[in-house]
Design a binder for these strands. Structure first.
Lengths: 348, 348
DNA sequence: CTGAAAGCGCTTACAG
DNA sequence: CTGAAAGCGCTTACAG
């Protein structure tokens, strides 16, 4: 309610001095600053964010772009929601708020993301749960507005990417299965157009190669990260004659892993007795099912923090030489952690 | 990039006319409006939200307040995240964006919620996952700023409350168990200071009473909505001598229900053979465990929509007679739906 | 139906 | 160290 004028009058100084005092400018005398701060506290004064953003040309707010596709089926992708919590926490620590953008590219045209960001004078945008290849995103990344994509490769003058270390996570999972004695290890992949799915598959193949294991074609089944596809892939694996059936499966996502476990149960296979299962993500359900799912946990808090740190680094680095060629972006990689439960036969 | 001046120059009209045309004022000639709209489209013009908010005194944005307590353990409360999706969808339909507020009452003082809302000139605030008794919330609700709490009773001149019909949901669950032949039905409650927990317990007691069932003290076990408490309560029920043990349990939250199911398994009891279980919420894991959990589903999309509708109704009704006594608020109730799976012994 | 002008609440050169 | 003034990009009475 109280504006800067009221505060200035109350303190007997000009609005300029109030502004300086509250924004930490060094020229203000200690005494004056203290009085202004106290009075501001007493009156419950808060500067109008609109006025501030208008005059400064920036809002100190960060936008989060979040695929409507996943939204509609919200509960289907619990990892994204955990990630949102991680992002929010990190933004909180940075003293910023978060705007959840509602952008409909189909209706508002291909520049909608960028236009919306400008409309709010956002400091930057974090993109999650979106396929990085979308042309509408290109306009955003190439605009020079700071942006960070989670789990998607992007290019642009002030664009970055953060992701879990999916390759290393997959390698660790396979090695774990190998250490438990498994030699016939299959995988169920995510959709191969998505970066995390690709990296998890690469890690799987790398580890299998390094360990000198055979990899028949049937051992690579393609899913889409959702449970039903895991069930379908699991059914196909279960149908293999016993001598050619894997004794363990690395599944690139927990929801698919749970689907596969159901398929195995329905096919009369015991998990982990007949077939061991390791998932990826560590969604809540992983710890709630029985046998509990061994899985490669993503650290959503760390990932959110990495996204925010990366973004704010771009924000600070305003004076980028925009003529300079955009370098290929190396994604920041957050470590994963193997959570051993029962589905691999090791825990208890 | 392009401001209203550029657009005005391009169209050969004044900025006032541009503003009117784009804001749908009726005085603008059809021809002029069309030209302005097309040019705006072509230039990718978007009005500055800051300038707009500053001059209009409102931002067209809605804030969401979300307890940091739950955040820290984010994954622990999947229902809140589903609800957030519901809210976002509804706000999307209303053409508004959503600001996720980061407010630290401990650090910023008891008026922090309200001050933050004013700072952003929010149209209103939706509060979720917070105990409505917090004194810091009182200041918010009583301020006259439109606000809606989900699952908490509140009072204030422009304050509302939405919730699932927890009583009816509980009644339906108990009747379902009764129809399956159960006569010894216990419950595991949520924390009794929270409205949903209270209503679910009331619904349970009401149904048990109407059906003429006995309710020994041991049949009401108090949990806290989290899994471990469900396990503890389940263990206590399992330890009852068989003749005094319930044959069915209505659990006021899915996470506790899953905990209870584990307790029963560990005690050598078969679900649903020895004891049937019905949960509440329908979190993702409910459909992923085996036996799959029968549960009273909350409709998070409908609940989010109800919250937004209620809030926007307050926003439109600016001219409230603030002298008028604040009426007790009747919460809007969203219907629940019993999802029958295997844990109650009915499905398959 | 349209334009010129005031003003929303701030921040920031520019003087002193 | 402080103040008077300009200006950020809009909307809206007020005239015409």
């Amino acid at each position: 309610m109280a504006g800067i004028k009221d505060l200035a009058r109350e303190c007997g100084v000009s609005v300029a001095t109030v502004s300086r005092a509250l924004n930490g400018h060094p020229e203000v005398s200690v005494e004056t600053r203290r009085q202004i701060q106290q009075t501001a506290e007493r009156l419950g004064y808060r500067p109008s964010q609109s006025a501030r953003a208008l005059v400064r040309g920036r809002s100190d707010a960060v936008g989060v772009l979040w695929d409507s596709g996943y939204e509609t089926v919200g509960r289907r992708h619990p990892f994204l929601l955990s990630l949102l919590v991680g992002i929010k926490q990190a933004l909180n620590d940075a003293g910023r708020h978060l705007i959840l953008l509602n952008v409909d590219v189909d209706r508002q045209g291909p520049r909608a993301y960028l236009e919306t960001a400008r409309e709010f004078q956002l400091d930057g945008v974090i993109v999650m749960g979106l396929d990085g290849h979308l042309s509408a995103l290109h306009a955003l990344f190439e605009s020079g507005l700071p942006c960070v994509a989670v789990d998607a490769e992007v290019a642009g003058p002030r664009a970055g990417c953060v992701t879990s270390d999916n390759r290393a996570g997959a390698v660790e999972a396979v090695r774990h299965l190998h250490a438990l004695g498994h030699r016939r290890i299959a995988t169920i992949t995510g959709p191969v157009e998505l970066m995390p799915a690709v990296h998890r598959l690469e890690g799987f193949e790398q580890a299998v190669g390094e360990l000198g294991l055979k990899l028949p074609d049937a051992f690579v089944q393609n899913g889409d990260f959702f449970m039903d596809s895991g069930y379908a892939c699991g059914t196909r694996l279960a149908k293999l004659p016993k001598s050619r059936r894997p004794t363990a499966v690395f599944v690139a996502g927990d929801e698919m892993a749970l689907g596969a476990m159901h398929a195995f149960a329905d096919a009369g296979l015991d998990v982990p007795g007949d077939i061991a299962v390791v998932g990826f993500d560590d969604i809540e359900a992983a710890g709630l099912v029985r046998p509990a799912l061994t899985t490669v946990a993503q650290d959503s808090l760390a990932l959110g923090a990495a996204a925010v740190d990366t973004l704010l680094a771009f924000v600070d680095k305003r004076a980028v030489d925009s003529a300079e060629a955009t370098p290929p972006i190396t994604p920041i990689r957050t470590p994963t952690r193997l959570v051993i439960r029962q589905s691999c036969g090791a825990g208890r």
